[in-house]
Design a protein around this nucleic acid. Structure first.
Lengths: 106, 106
DNA sequence: ATAATTTGCAACCGATCAGTTGCAAATATA
DNA sequence: TATATTTGCAACTGATCGGTTGCAAATTAT
């Protein structure tokens, strides 16, 4: 079973869960109330998020408060970083390279 | 059919393709040579990447050079940005909030 | 002790996904 | 013109995904 951070945040519901957990730790029941779905569906999403290390649960009596592990998202940011220079540059290198190929053909 | 940038970069092969396209525009055939898979499989990945706007093709004769559209990745970076403060902060707010809940219970 | 609450796990279902195979269209080469 | 190359599209397959239902375990409340 593939369980990496990229696959974890691919699902919009999971991203919404992560966003909710940004401000406070929540229980599965509380989370489920925010979405038009069952608690079990939310629980399965939590399991995915937990297995990839993006959230962590902390038991308090019979309730489990799930909190975000923000550092995990840094892996995505690190992967994006090399591309940042590309979208921040005014000129587009790929276009230039393509132009070079074109000119070579002529 | 879901076709957003998050789902596009969820697949490791597609991320590898995007990384290869970072330095130069490539044709489907050239790309396929780099992976242990068929050209058609790569073509399907390209289609997904193209449909979500992460790559764009430019025809040169019978060949099509696919190039990356880096700006599209900014959408992911923008989603990550609010979390950046969290992983850069030394203290963890969620832990604090959880402590508050705990103390309230006592 | 009994009942209610909160949660995780397993089984199942329909939809989607990644990959393969086969084929047709367009372009380049002989 | 005939052949080879490059590509996209459609059909198919096995695997995975998101969601639901049912149930058992642990904790809390009556």
């Amino acid at each position: 079973m593939r369980r990496d951070i990229f696959q974890a945040i691919a699902d919009p519901t999971r991203r919404a869960i992560v966003t909710l957990l940004m401000t406070q730790a929540l229980t599965p029941n509380t989370l489920a109330e925010r979405f038009d779905t069952t608690r079990q569906a939310v629980s399965k999403h939590i399991k995915v998020l937990q297995e990839c290390g993006l959230v962590a649960g902390e038991q308090l009596g019979r309730e489990i408060y799930y909190k975000i592990v923000p550092m995990k998202l840094k892996e995505v940011a690190d992967w994006l970083e090399p591309f940042r220079q590309m979208w921040e540059d005014n000129f587009n290198r790929i276009d230039d390279l393509l132009e070079q190929i074109k000119n070579k053909e002529l």
